[in-house]
Amino acid sequence: MRLLERMRKDWFMVGIVLAIAGAKLEPSIGVNGGPLKPEITVSYIAVATIFFNSGLSLKTEELTSALVHLKLHLFIQIFTLAFFPATIWLFLQLLSITPINEWLLKGLQTVGCMPPPVSSAVILTKAVGGNEAAAIFNSAFGSFLGIVITPLLLLLFLGSSSSVPFTSIFSQLFMTVVVPLIIGQIVRRYIKDWLERKKPPFGAISSSVLLMIIYTTFCDTFSNPNIDLDKFSLVLILFIIFSIQLSFMLLTFIFSTRNNSGFTPADTVAIIFCSTHKSLTLGIPMLKIVFAGHEHLSLISVPLLIYHPAQILLGSVLVPTIKSWMVSRQKGVKLTRPTV
């Protein structure tokens, strides 16, 4: 029973495993030109659905209260979309001399280029009792920024699939990402009360569509006999991902707790999670567009597929530790505050 309960709770992780296993068993179903017609259903309909869903669910009307803390937002966005990818790029220059699969290394770079997720950083910040408003703002704002910046970063650090011209990439991004997102936001304005009442399962909808994208991506992989993924590279990538996450969490903690930082302990919690988490929901569709037709797309996607559960697992494990630190620090601040 406990296993079933656990599987129900982590259904998306189970879904990823099943999607990859299904693709391995019968890749012909989800390949381009196959019965699922992913070149249409995934490249356009599925991706547009995810971003329309994001537009519907993003509570931009609640973000104005968090706007005042400009320094906090700048720190998170610069760390996420500038420092993170640049540091990964430097790190990969060292790793390039190792025998690790080069496409997995490129996948690590794509992780660095991704915007923050809409949900996990907020959930963990809330679990600790940190600055939830700041987490919500930066997750939402980072997602909007990521629509423009992430493709540019991907093209800057990795280039694109040679079969897809630059203008085509951005026209598809505009039609399948920007337009659905804007439409979702417009629709939200008219049905906001209904959405608040009914609380549709936005996360589950996006995750379900995402599983289809993951499935078809791996169908392409397993149908290509030239692709070989060695287990040594995979294990090393797993270790590297956990190391990167821990290192960056520690780094953001050090930066945000300096005496002159101006951040409260609650701010630090939001910074730790928002600066180091990366979006799978936005990331996979973007990779699908930028690297359309690329024979190694699934290998490039693997680090992001690992990073997503890893960030949730690591964050969940660290919640009690971070919470006890925050509570003790807040008590310390109250004790040292002069009485009037």
Rank of each mutant, 00 (worst) to 15 (best):
Ile136Arg: 12
Ser328Cys: 13
Gly15Glu: 11
Phe263Glu: 03
Ile149Gln: 02
Leu95Gln: 05
Ala140Leu: 02
Met114Ser: 09
Trp89Cys: 01
Trp103Ala: 00
Ser298Glu: 15
Ala48Val: 03
Trp194Ile: 14
Trp89Arg: 04
Phe263Val: 09
Ile40Ser: 06
Phe75Arg: 10
Ile214Tyr: 12
Val42Ser: 09
Phe144His: 07
Leu63Lys: 04
Leu105Gln: 06
Gln77Asp: 06
Pro265Glu: 04
Phe84Val: 02
Thr176Gly: 11
Gly146Asp: 05
Phe79Asn: 03
Leu155Pro: 00
His294Arg: 07
Ile186Gly: 03
Lys126Thr: 11
Trp325Phe: 12
Phe202Trp: 12
His277Pro: 03
Leu81Thr: 07
Phe91Glu: 00
Trp89His: 10
Ser171Trp: 11
Leu58Asn: 12
Glu132Tyr: 04
Leu313Thr: 06
Thr167Pro: 05
Ile29Trp: 15
Leu56Asp: 03
Thr276Leu: 07
Phe253Gly: 05
Phe166Tyr: 13
Ile123Asp: 01
Thr41Cys: 12
Gly33Ser: 06
Ser223Tyr: 01
Asp228Arg: 11
Phe242Asp: 07
Leu246His: 10
Lys331Phe: 04
Gln93Trp: 10
Lys126Val: 09
Leu299Ala: 01
Ala46Trp: 00
Glu196Gln: 14
Asn260Pro: 10
Arg329Trp: 11
Leu104Glu: 06
Phe12Ser: 10
Ser275Gly: 06
Ala127Gly: 05
Cys219Phe: 00
Ile254Gln: 08
Val187Ala: 08
Ile123His: 00
Tyr44Met: 09
Ser233Cys: 11
Pro115Lys: 05
Thr49Tyr: 00
Thr98Asp: 04
Ile20Phe: 04
Ala21Asp: 02
Leu104Asn: 01
Val17Arg: 04
Ala86Tyr: 07
Ser207Asp: 14
Ser139Phe: 09
Pro180Val: 01
Ala134Cys: 09
Thr221Pro: 00
Met7Phe: 14
Pro117Glu: 06
Gly184Val: 09
Lys37Ala: 15
Pro38Thr: 14
Ala121Ser: 15
Asn131Trp: 02
Trp11Asn: 10
Glu102Phe: 08
Ser43Gly: 04
Gly130Asn: 08
Ile20Leu: 08
Val14Glu: 10
Ala135Thr: 09
Gly130His: 00
Ile240Phe: 01
Leu297Met: 12
Pro265Asp: 06
Val14Ala: 15
Leu94Met: 14
Ser139Met: 08
Ala292Pro: 01
Pro338Thr: 01
Lys24Phe: 15
Ala19Glu: 06
Val164Phe: 07
Leu74Gly: 15
Leu155Arg: 01
Phe174Arg: 00
Thr321Ile: 14
Arg188Asp: 08
Arg188Trp: 05
Ile205Leu: 13
Val14Ile: 15
Leu318Asp: 02
Leu152Lys: 03
Ile306Pro: 15
Lys198Cys: 08
Phe137Arg: 01
Gln93Glu: 11
Ser243Cys: 11
Gly22Arg: 02
Lys323Asn: 08
Pro165Ser: 15
Thr339Val: 14
Thr216Asn: 02
Ile45Lys: 04
Gln185Ile: 00
Phe157Leu: 08
Lys59Ser: 11
Asp228Leu: 03
Phe91Ile: 07
Ala310Tyr: 10
Asn53Lys: 01
Val31Thr: 14
Leu210Arg: 11
